[in-house]
Design a protein around this nucleic acid. Structure first.
Lengths: 223, 223
DNA sequence: CGATTGCTTGATACCTCTCAACCCAGGTGG
DNA sequence: CCACCTGGGTTGAGAGGTATCAAGCAATCG
């Protein structure tokens, strides 16, 4: 059940390729490819949780809305990442495309059947959830005890998994997505970006394109 | 692997009795009872994760320390709750007694062996982790997007699981524990308690004893 | 008792939010 | 081609909530 050999957990803002990278053949055949344009909803909190998803390309965000419109983005899922695993009948989060993306959907009941038969698949599911838990906890640390600058530095350092062009990273998500992920406002995110640039930690080459000039310094900011 | 029958997830600040409540006999025999005085460390981040624990009595906190002394408390575990499940070799959080408490420790390797044999045990472990994930996400929502008043209201409403005397709840943890859990300072927690009392939502009968006078109102505060 | 510890209360500072204006790139249509 | 519009991002000024620093209080313990 638990794997003592799986070593130090990587903590990435964008959930990277992980479980099911080399999936059982069964699984590959049962999935169905789907595409979503940016900001399209994939599923909504309270919907019947009858599917589990894996990202093929692009980035998906999972989030929750409060009555007054405040939004908390829990995680960004990049290619290879699984999302939509649930205990109960319904999803307890919403999921939407943070960028144009394609995902594979698996029928939950089918996946359950397969997992019951395959020791290996069920272990992978277990590890997937455990990894998500680890990330959620890291995220709590970011939200609870850190300044805007620290939050953004952490976010950037954990975004190293993103598409890279030369030394630059490309952010798939909007300022609002970042803000709602870090518990800040768009304005503060923007100001903090500018601040990091003035202090020569990064260079902003476009709203979605950032060069990490001083990685050591950024890491230092993460305390 | 996944259980479609396990319905709506309870979200409690204090992790309640859940998995292993009716444990396999094997498990019961392998556990070893241990006692800890308040604030004693049970394990530390980076220690070898060779044991898994279940709370028998009292409350345990899992937490992490930053270099500058800031502390984030991730969760409080009450009687019946499992903690210490890990992917990697080492614990990625620390655990300590929030109040005097007794826990049962299981050898991880033994638990792994048992889980490999018992469909039921491995399912319970899976669900335990999934539940923890759900709580961690709820917690992120509290940390990221809420005012001190909302945070404390949520905390109190989720503490209904606590020992109750009449209509009062008894808080097992200190103000500092609460503060570090909610991402606030002790002073703000204290002020917010007072504020809630002035507004007649609660009555403070002692530092650790609170009467929830207006439950409907408190629930309203949770938005 | 005096000392210690945990909690409460007060005054002020600081960080982030709020509201508002502005900028810029992309798309549309005359 | 350019005027216009639109949406996302940036920047500014002021307000507000929480942190910080400091003092005071109550309970516990030697």
């Amino acid at each position: 059940m638990m794997n003592p050999n799986a070593d130090a957990v990587r903590t990435a803002e964008i959930q990277p390729a992980e479980a099911l990278e080399t999936p059982d053949l069964d699984l590959r055949t049962t999935g169905r490819a789907r595409h979503f344009l940016r900001d399209r909803e994939i599923y909504s909190e309270r919907d019947d949780a009858d599917h589990v998803f894996k990202v093929e390309a692009g980035v998906v965000r999972t989030y929750k809305l409060l009555r007054d419109g405040r939004r908390q983005v829990y995680a960004f899922h990049g290619p290879g990442s699984l999302f939509g695993l649930e205990i109960g009948k319904a999803y307890c989060l919403s999921a939407a495309a943070a960028s144009d993306c394609s995902v594979i959907s698996y029928e939950r009941r089918q996946l359950e059947r397969l997992a019951a038969q395959s020791e290996r698949l069920s272990l992978e599911l277990y590890l997937t959830v455990l990894r998500s838990l680890d990330r959620a906890q890291q995220h709590s640390l970011s939200l609870g005890r850190r300044s805007a600058t620290e939050k953004l530095a952490i976010f950037l350092m954990n975004s190293t998994e993103l598409p890279i062009v030369g030394t630059d990273i490309l952010l798939a998500m909007s300022r609002k997505d970042i803000a709602d992920h870090l518990g800040l406002t768009i304005e503060t995110v923007s100001r903090t970006f500018s601040d990091l640039e003035e202090r020569a930690f990064i260079e902003i080459k476009g709203a979605r394109r950032v060069c990490l000039v001083d990685v050591a310094g950024l890491r230092e900011l993460c305390a």
